[in-house]
Amino acid sequence: MVLVYAESPKGKFKKAAYEAVTYGAKTAQVMGTQCVALTLGAVEDASVLGKYGAAQVLNVANDSLNNFDSQTFTAIIAGVAQQVGAKVIVMNHSSSGKSLLGRLAARLDAGSVSGVKSVPTVDGGFKVKRNVFSGKAIAEYEIKSDVKVLSLMGNALPPEEVGAPVAVQTINAEGPAGRVKVKEVKVEEGTVPLPEAELVVSAGRGMKGPENWGIIDELAKELGATTACSRPVADTGWRPHHEHVGQTGVAIRPNLYIAAGISGAIQHLAGVNSSKVIVVINKDPEAPFFKAADYGVCADLFDVVPALTAAFKKYKANN
């Protein structure tokens, strides 16, 4: 059995949950077994997970699960894994997954690989791949324990609808009361968080100052993209630090990454080189970023960015 913990922040699934179930279903297929999805706490419409390949959808609901505590969640997921006889446990490589994967591995004495990007292969050992060295290489891992714990990198594979909704079964599982009390969750509504974003518009020191960001916001708005920035821009307070991408910031893997006025230092590339398509706007033809780009525009960003926004508007109006 493959057990997928489908996370539901504030009681709702995001794309990540569908990705995890799709991944779990594909893994189950390779292993010749079934995929069971587990949801914790009050969730809207959990039956939808059947569409992504879950043969069963389980829900454990008690009040303690409305407050995220990795100890409570781990005990419950481990308990359910044992109840259903799970050989593989899958979750997202998300802020909660990063606290759960290691705990589950330690609790079950299981081998684990975080941030995987491919479906496992099982001939001659259970093997799975992930990026290492901030995307500069790919490593294959072999897991040798009976039970295995995996977390899936965001945007590593698209959710696939392969089945129909299934009825949700409510089950009981106990965990210790959490010792971490969540006091407040401050999430910007309306924008897609960077780790999940499919479209990202980013800018660097070439912007000269924070007062010039209007043109970046307009391009992002036109595309429905999330905004990001280089590290010095966040360090000097031109932009909030959660926008900082790179080796020491957020690692992203959008379908499209547009970078304006960013030189493309190796530490910046480390966080963005998994993007499917990279567009670089820079006035210096020698900027290293062009080597990592799919499309390049060598000119003043203060001319190019507004022109690009206008061109997107025009294309959308005509097509």
Binding site: V113, G135, E140, E142, G296, A307, A310
Partner: peptide, 30 residues
């Protein structure tokens, strides 16, 4: 025990060369 170990490495597929776009022609890029 070592329960999960690396058994091989590969380099990411090489990027094809950048396509430079005329700055006066953003319609082309779009």
């Amino acid at each position: 025990a070592d329960l999960a170990v690396t058994v091989g490495f590969e380099m990411p597929p090489a990027k094809s060369a950048v396509k430079m776009i005329d700055p006066e022609n953003m319609d082309e890029l779009v």
